[in-house]
Protein backbone atom coordinates (compact mmCIF):
# COMPACT_ATOMS: atom_id res chain seq x y z
CA UNK A 1 0.00 0.00 0.00
CA UNK A 2 2.84 2.34 0.86
CA UNK A 3 4.53 1.83 -2.49
CA UNK A 4 1.25 2.52 -4.26
CA UNK A 5 0.74 5.84 -2.49
CA UNK A 6 4.36 6.77 -3.03
CA UNK A 7 4.03 6.09 -6.73
CA UNK A 8 0.98 8.34 -6.90
CA UNK A 9 2.85 11.10 -5.14
CA UNK A 10 5.75 10.90 -7.57
CA UNK A 11 3.26 11.13 -10.40
CA UNK A 12 1.66 14.25 -8.92
CA UNK A 13 5.01 15.89 -8.26
CA UNK A 14 6.12 15.38 -11.85
CA UNK A 15 2.86 16.93 -13.04
CA UNK A 16 3.30 19.94 -10.76
CA UNK A 17 6.84 20.42 -12.06
CA UNK A 18 5.57 20.37 -15.61
CA UNK A 19 2.90 22.96 -14.86
CA UNK A 20 5.48 25.14 -13.14
CA UNK A 21 7.76 24.93 -16.18
CA UNK A 22 4.87 25.78 -18.47
CA UNK A 23 3.90 28.76 -16.37
CA UNK A 24 7.34 30.39 -16.66
CA UNK A 25 7.59 29.64 -20.36
CA UNK A 26 6.69 33.19 -21.54
CA UNK A 27 9.75 34.48 -19.66
CA UNK A 28 12.03 32.53 -21.94
CA UNK A 29 13.32 34.52 -24.91
CA UNK A 30 12.08 33.03 -28.15
CA UNK A 31 8.62 32.79 -26.71
CA UNK A 32 7.88 36.48 -27.12
CA UNK A 33 4.40 37.81 -26.68
CA UNK A 34 3.44 37.51 -30.31
CA UNK A 35 5.63 34.79 -31.71
CA UNK A 36 4.57 31.82 -33.77
CA UNK A 37 5.98 29.59 -31.05
CA UNK A 38 3.64 31.19 -28.56
CA UNK A 39 0.74 30.50 -30.88
CA UNK A 40 1.78 26.87 -31.03
CA UNK A 41 2.04 26.61 -27.26
CA UNK A 42 -1.47 28.03 -26.95
CA UNK A 43 -2.77 25.51 -29.45
CA UNK A 44 -1.03 22.67 -27.65
CA UNK A 45 -2.69 23.65 -24.39
CA UNK A 46 -6.06 24.00 -26.14
CA UNK A 47 -5.81 20.69 -27.98
CA UNK A 48 -4.57 18.88 -24.90
CA UNK A 49 -7.56 20.23 -22.97
CA UNK A 50 -9.98 19.25 -25.73
CA UNK A 51 -8.50 15.79 -25.90
CA UNK A 52 -8.60 15.40 -22.15
CA UNK A 53 -12.27 16.42 -22.13
CA UNK A 54 -12.95 13.74 -24.75
CA UNK A 55 -10.79 11.29 -22.82
CA UNK A 56 -13.29 11.30 -19.94
CA UNK A 57 -16.04 9.69 -22.01
CA UNK A 58 -14.02 8.20 -24.86
CA UNK A 59 -10.93 6.96 -23.04
CA UNK A 60 -11.94 6.21 -19.48
CA UNK A 61 -15.58 5.34 -20.09
CA UNK A 62 -14.97 3.70 -23.48
CA UNK A 63 -17.80 5.40 -25.39
CA UNK A 64 -16.24 6.65 -28.62
CA UNK A 65 -18.07 9.86 -29.46
CA UNK A 66 -17.66 11.72 -32.72
CA UNK A 67 -20.13 14.32 -31.50
CA UNK A 68 -17.85 16.48 -29.42
CA UNK A 69 -17.64 19.23 -32.00
CA UNK A 70 -21.30 19.92 -31.19
CA UNK A 71 -20.43 20.69 -27.58
CA UNK A 72 -17.34 22.59 -28.67
CA UNK A 73 -19.57 24.64 -30.96
CA UNK A 74 -22.17 25.30 -28.29
CA UNK A 75 -19.42 26.65 -26.03
CA UNK A 76 -18.05 28.78 -28.84
CA UNK A 77 -21.47 30.20 -29.67
CA UNK A 78 -22.22 30.78 -25.97
CA UNK A 79 -19.26 33.14 -25.68
CA UNK A 80 -19.75 34.53 -29.19
CA UNK A 81 -23.41 35.41 -28.67
CA UNK A 82 -22.67 37.07 -25.35
CA UNK A 83 -20.13 39.37 -26.99
CA UNK A 84 -21.45 39.90 -30.54
CA UNK A 85 -25.21 39.75 -30.13
CA UNK A 86 -25.61 41.07 -26.60
CA UNK A 87 -22.51 43.22 -26.37
CA UNK A 88 -21.62 41.95 -22.91
CA UNK A 89 -18.64 40.16 -21.46
CA UNK A 90 -18.19 36.56 -22.62
CA UNK A 91 -17.97 35.07 -19.12
CA UNK A 92 -21.69 34.57 -18.54
CA UNK A 93 -21.99 33.17 -22.06
CA UNK A 94 -19.18 30.70 -21.33
CA UNK A 95 -20.97 29.41 -18.26
CA UNK A 96 -24.32 29.19 -20.05
CA UNK A 97 -22.61 27.43 -22.95
CA UNK A 98 -21.07 24.85 -20.60
CA UNK A 99 -24.38 24.15 -18.90
CA UNK A 100 -26.22 24.00 -22.21
CA UNK A 101 -23.62 21.64 -23.67
CA UNK A 102 -24.01 19.31 -20.69
CA UNK A 103 -27.80 19.34 -21.10
CA UNK A 104 -27.62 18.70 -24.84
CA UNK A 105 -25.11 15.93 -24.21
CA UNK A 106 -27.45 14.17 -21.79
CA UNK A 107 -30.47 14.56 -24.07
CA UNK A 108 -28.75 13.22 -27.18
CA UNK A 109 -26.72 10.51 -25.42
CA UNK A 110 -29.61 8.99 -23.51
CA UNK A 111 -31.09 7.31 -26.58
CA UNK A 112 -27.65 6.73 -28.11
CA UNK A 113 -26.34 4.84 -25.07
CA UNK A 114 -28.92 2.18 -25.77
CA UNK A 115 -26.71 1.42 -28.78
CA UNK A 116 -23.43 -0.26 -28.12
CA UNK A 117 -19.98 -0.20 -29.64
CA UNK A 118 -19.75 1.00 -33.22
CA UNK A 119 -23.41 1.92 -33.41
CA UNK A 120 -22.96 4.52 -30.72
CA UNK A 121 -20.10 6.06 -32.69
CA UNK A 122 -22.17 6.12 -35.89
CA UNK A 123 -25.11 7.77 -34.13
CA UNK A 124 -22.85 10.55 -32.86
CA UNK A 125 -21.62 11.13 -36.43
CA UNK A 126 -25.18 11.85 -37.48
CA UNK A 127 -25.70 14.29 -34.65
CA UNK A 128 -22.83 16.48 -35.81
CA UNK A 129 -24.41 16.77 -39.25
CA UNK A 130 -27.79 17.64 -37.76
CA UNK A 131 -26.36 20.42 -35.61
CA UNK A 132 -24.15 21.68 -38.41
CA UNK A 133 -27.12 22.10 -40.79
CA UNK A 134 -29.33 23.48 -38.04
CA UNK A 135 -26.83 26.17 -37.08
CA UNK A 136 -26.20 27.10 -40.74
CA UNK A 137 -29.82 28.14 -41.26
CA UNK A 138 -30.52 29.55 -37.80
CA UNK A 139 -30.64 33.34 -38.23
CA UNK A 140 -30.73 34.25 -34.55
CA UNK A 141 -27.22 32.96 -34.08
CA UNK A 142 -25.89 34.41 -37.31
CA UNK A 143 -26.59 31.52 -39.66
CA UNK A 144 -23.95 30.69 -42.25
CA UNK A 145 -22.31 34.09 -41.90
CA UNK A 146 -21.28 33.34 -38.37
CA UNK A 147 -20.33 35.83 -35.71
CA UNK A 148 -17.60 38.41 -36.20
CA UNK A 149 -16.19 39.98 -33.08
CA UNK A 150 -16.19 43.77 -32.80
CA UNK A 151 -13.01 45.43 -31.62
CA UNK A 152 -13.61 46.17 -27.97
CA UNK A 153 -11.51 47.13 -25.01
CA UNK A 154 -8.91 44.51 -24.16
CA UNK A 155 -8.53 42.91 -20.76
CA UNK A 156 -9.71 40.03 -18.66
CA UNK A 157 -13.25 41.43 -18.44
CA UNK A 158 -13.70 41.03 -22.17
CA UNK A 159 -11.41 38.00 -22.48
CA UNK A 160 -9.67 39.76 -25.35
CA UNK A 161 -6.19 41.06 -26.04
CA UNK A 162 -4.99 42.71 -29.22
CA UNK A 163 -1.24 43.09 -28.98
CA UNK A 164 -0.09 40.17 -26.95
CA UNK A 165 -0.71 36.45 -26.82
CA UNK A 166 0.65 35.94 -23.32
CA UNK A 167 -2.68 36.31 -21.46
CA UNK A 168 -4.27 33.85 -23.88
CA UNK A 169 -1.46 31.46 -23.10
CA UNK A 170 -2.06 31.73 -19.37
CA UNK A 171 -5.80 31.25 -19.76
CA UNK A 172 -5.22 28.20 -21.95
CA UNK A 173 -2.83 26.89 -19.33
CA UNK A 174 -5.47 27.50 -16.67
CA UNK A 175 -8.07 25.54 -18.63
CA UNK A 176 -5.51 22.79 -19.20
CA UNK A 177 -4.71 22.59 -15.49
CA UNK A 178 -8.39 22.65 -14.56
CA UNK A 179 -9.39 19.80 -16.87
CA UNK A 180 -6.32 17.72 -16.08
CA UNK A 181 -6.88 18.16 -12.35
CA UNK A 182 -10.49 17.06 -12.66
CA UNK A 183 -9.45 13.95 -14.57
CA UNK A 184 -6.59 13.29 -12.15
CA UNK A 185 -9.04 13.48 -9.26
CA UNK A 186 -11.55 11.22 -11.01
CA UNK A 187 -8.81 8.68 -11.74
CA UNK A 188 -8.27 8.02 -8.05
CA UNK A 189 -11.86 7.97 -6.92
CA UNK A 190 -14.91 5.76 -7.19
CA UNK A 191 -16.31 7.47 -10.26
CA UNK A 192 -13.10 6.92 -12.19
CA UNK A 193 -12.96 3.25 -11.32
CA UNK A 194 -16.61 2.85 -12.24
CA UNK A 195 -16.01 4.51 -15.61
CA UNK A 196 -13.23 2.08 -16.41
CA UNK A 197 -15.35 -0.83 -15.19
CA UNK A 198 -18.13 0.21 -17.58
CA UNK A 199 -15.59 0.41 -20.40
CA UNK A 200 -14.13 -3.03 -19.72
CA UNK A 201 -17.42 -4.84 -19.14
CA UNK A 202 -20.76 -3.24 -18.71
CA UNK A 203 -22.53 -6.37 -17.51
CA UNK A 204 -19.78 -7.16 -15.04
CA UNK A 205 -19.92 -3.64 -13.69
CA UNK A 206 -23.69 -3.86 -13.30
CA UNK A 207 -23.35 -7.13 -11.43
CA UNK A 208 -21.17 -5.26 -8.93
CA UNK A 209 -23.76 -2.56 -8.31
CA UNK A 210 -22.68 -0.01 -10.92
CA UNK A 211 -25.49 1.90 -12.62
CA UNK A 212 -23.79 2.02 -16.00
CA UNK A 213 -26.30 4.36 -17.64
CA UNK A 214 -25.91 6.93 -14.88
CA UNK A 215 -22.13 6.67 -15.05
CA UNK A 216 -22.07 7.13 -18.82
CA UNK A 217 -24.47 10.07 -18.75
CA UNK A 218 -22.55 11.83 -16.00
CA UNK A 219 -19.26 11.25 -17.79
CA UNK A 220 -20.78 12.56 -21.02
CA UNK A 221 -22.18 15.69 -19.35
CA UNK A 222 -18.84 16.42 -17.69
CA UNK A 223 -16.95 15.79 -20.90
CA UNK A 224 -19.33 17.98 -22.92
CA UNK A 225 -19.12 20.95 -20.56
CA UNK A 226 -15.31 20.73 -20.63
CA UNK A 227 -15.41 20.62 -24.44
CA UNK A 228 -17.66 23.70 -24.39
CA UNK A 229 -15.15 25.52 -22.21
CA UNK A 230 -12.46 24.78 -24.80
CA UNK A 231 -14.83 25.97 -27.51
CA UNK A 232 -15.37 29.31 -25.83
CA UNK A 233 -11.62 29.76 -25.46
CA UNK A 234 -11.23 28.99 -29.15
CA UNK A 235 -13.71 31.66 -30.20
CA UNK A 236 -12.19 34.27 -27.90
CA UNK A 237 -8.78 33.55 -29.39
CA UNK A 238 -10.01 33.35 -32.95
CA UNK A 239 -12.48 36.28 -32.72
CA UNK A 240 -14.75 34.72 -35.27
CA UNK A 241 -17.00 31.69 -35.42
CA UNK A 242 -19.19 30.08 -38.02
CA UNK A 243 -20.80 26.61 -38.02
CA UNK A 244 -18.30 24.72 -40.24
CA UNK A 245 -15.42 26.08 -38.17
CA UNK A 246 -16.59 24.46 -34.95
CA UNK A 247 -19.40 22.02 -35.64
CA UNK A 248 -17.81 19.73 -38.17
CA UNK A 249 -16.57 16.20 -38.31
CA UNK A 250 -13.12 17.77 -38.75
CA UNK A 251 -13.25 19.25 -35.29
CA UNK A 252 -14.73 16.06 -33.88
CA UNK A 253 -11.89 14.06 -35.35
CA UNK A 254 -9.37 16.31 -33.62
CA UNK A 255 -10.85 15.42 -30.25
CA UNK A 256 -10.62 11.74 -31.06
CA UNK A 257 -7.29 11.62 -32.89
CA UNK A 258 -5.23 13.62 -30.43
CA UNK A 259 -6.43 11.40 -27.59
CA UNK A 260 -6.03 8.10 -29.37
CA UNK A 261 -2.61 8.94 -30.80
CA UNK A 262 -1.40 10.10 -27.40
CA UNK A 263 -2.93 7.20 -25.51
CA UNK A 264 -6.59 7.11 -24.57
CA UNK A 265 -7.63 6.29 -21.05
CA UNK A 266 -4.43 7.73 -19.61
CA UNK A 267 -3.81 11.07 -17.97
CA UNK A 268 -0.72 11.95 -19.97
CA UNK A 269 -1.98 10.68 -23.33
CA UNK A 270 -3.89 13.80 -24.42
CA UNK A 271 -0.96 16.10 -23.62
CA UNK A 272 1.46 13.81 -25.40
CA UNK A 273 -0.78 13.65 -28.45
CA UNK A 274 -1.23 17.41 -28.57
CA UNK A 275 2.46 18.09 -28.00
CA UNK A 276 3.40 16.01 -31.03
CA UNK A 277 0.51 16.63 -33.38
CA UNK A 278 0.03 20.39 -33.00
CA UNK A 279 3.60 21.42 -33.90
CA UNK A 280 3.57 18.87 -36.69
CA UNK A 281 0.33 20.22 -38.07
CA UNK A 282 1.27 23.88 -37.72
CA UNK A 283 4.83 23.60 -39.04
CA UNK A 284 3.90 21.44 -42.00
CA UNK A 285 1.18 23.93 -42.80
CA UNK A 286 3.60 26.82 -42.42
CA UNK A 287 6.40 25.30 -44.53
CA UNK A 288 4.63 23.10 -47.04
CA UNK A 289 1.16 24.59 -47.07
CA UNK A 290 2.15 26.49 -50.21
CA UNK A 291 2.92 23.32 -52.17
CA UNK A 292 -0.74 23.04 -52.90
CA UNK A 293 -3.26 22.25 -50.28
CA UNK A 294 -2.99 19.11 -48.29
CA UNK A 295 0.70 18.22 -47.85
CA UNK A 296 0.32 18.85 -44.14
CA UNK A 297 -2.71 16.60 -44.05
CA UNK A 298 -0.87 13.84 -45.95
CA UNK A 299 1.95 13.83 -43.41
CA UNK A 300 -0.60 13.94 -40.62
CA UNK A 301 -2.42 10.95 -42.09
CA UNK A 302 0.77 8.95 -42.57
CA UNK A 303 1.77 9.45 -38.96
CA UNK A 304 -1.62 8.30 -37.78
CA UNK A 305 -1.43 5.14 -39.87
CA UNK A 306 2.07 4.33 -38.60
CA UNK A 307 1.13 4.77 -34.97
CA UNK A 308 -2.14 2.89 -35.18
CA UNK A 309 -0.41 -0.05 -36.84
CA UNK A 310 2.76 -0.09 -34.75
CA UNK A 311 1.50 0.95 -31.35
CA UNK A 312 -2.26 0.77 -30.83
CA UNK A 313 -1.89 1.98 -27.25
CA UNK A 314 -0.71 5.34 -28.60
CA UNK A 315 2.46 7.27 -27.93
CA UNK A 316 2.14 6.53 -24.25
CA UNK A 317 2.60 2.89 -25.25
CA UNK A 318 5.92 3.76 -26.88
CA UNK A 319 7.02 5.57 -23.73
CA UNK A 320 6.05 2.63 -21.55
CA UNK A 321 7.93 0.30 -23.86
CA UNK A 322 11.08 2.44 -23.55
CA UNK A 323 10.63 2.61 -19.79
CA UNK A 324 10.34 -1.16 -19.58
CA UNK A 325 13.39 -1.72 -21.73
CA UNK A 326 15.32 0.75 -19.59
CA UNK A 327 14.31 -1.07 -16.40
CA UNK A 328 15.34 -4.38 -17.91
CA UNK A 329 18.84 -3.22 -18.78
CA UNK A 330 19.14 -1.75 -15.30
CA UNK A 331 18.17 -5.07 -13.76
CA UNK A 332 20.75 -6.86 -15.89
CA UNK A 333 23.40 -4.44 -14.76
CA UNK A 334 22.56 -5.17 -11.14
CA UNK A 335 22.87 -8.87 -11.83
Amino acid sequence: MVSREKKLKIKDISWLTLVLLLSVLPLIPGFTANSFRMHIMILIMLYASMAQAWNIIGGYCGQVSFGHSVFFGIGAYGAGMAVVTYGGTPWLGIIIGMILAACVAVIISYPCFKLSGHYFAIATFAIVEIFNRGFLVWDWIGGALGLDYPIIEEGLKNFMWHNTKTPYYYLALLIFVLIFSIVRWLEGHRFGYYMRAVRDGQETAESLGVNSTAIKLTAMALSASMAALCGSFFVQYNLRVDPPMVMSLDTSMKFVLVTILGGSGTLAGPLLGAAVLVPLQEYTRAFWGGLGGGVDLIIFGLLIIIIVVKQPAGMIGILQYIQKAFKKTKLQEVK
Binding site: R196, A197, G201, E206, S207, V210
Partner: peptide, 23 residues
Protein backbone atom coordinates in the same frame (compact mmCIF):
# COMPACT_ATOMS: atom_id res chain seq x y z
CA UNK B 1 -31.91 -4.17 -12.89
CA UNK B 2 -28.74 -6.13 -12.03
CA UNK B 3 -27.14 -3.17 -10.26
CA UNK B 4 -30.23 -2.62 -8.12
CA UNK B 5 -30.16 -6.24 -7.00
CA UNK B 6 -26.42 -6.07 -6.35
CA UNK B 7 -26.96 -2.96 -4.21
CA UNK B 8 -29.53 -4.85 -2.15
CA UNK B 9 -26.81 -7.40 -1.35
CA UNK B 10 -27.22 -10.28 -3.80
CA UNK B 11 -24.03 -10.52 -5.86
CA UNK B 12 -23.02 -13.17 -8.35
CA UNK B 13 -19.96 -14.40 -10.20
CA UNK B 14 -19.94 -15.48 -13.83
CA UNK B 15 -19.33 -19.01 -15.06
CA UNK B 16 -17.59 -17.69 -18.15
CA UNK B 17 -15.14 -15.45 -16.36
CA UNK B 18 -15.46 -11.77 -17.08
CA UNK B 19 -12.42 -9.95 -15.77
CA UNK B 20 -12.31 -6.20 -16.41
CA UNK B 21 -9.40 -7.11 -18.57
CA UNK B 22 -7.53 -3.82 -19.01
CA UNK B 23 -7.58 -3.08 -15.31
Amino acid sequence: KPYEIARKGAVRTFQVVRPLKDM
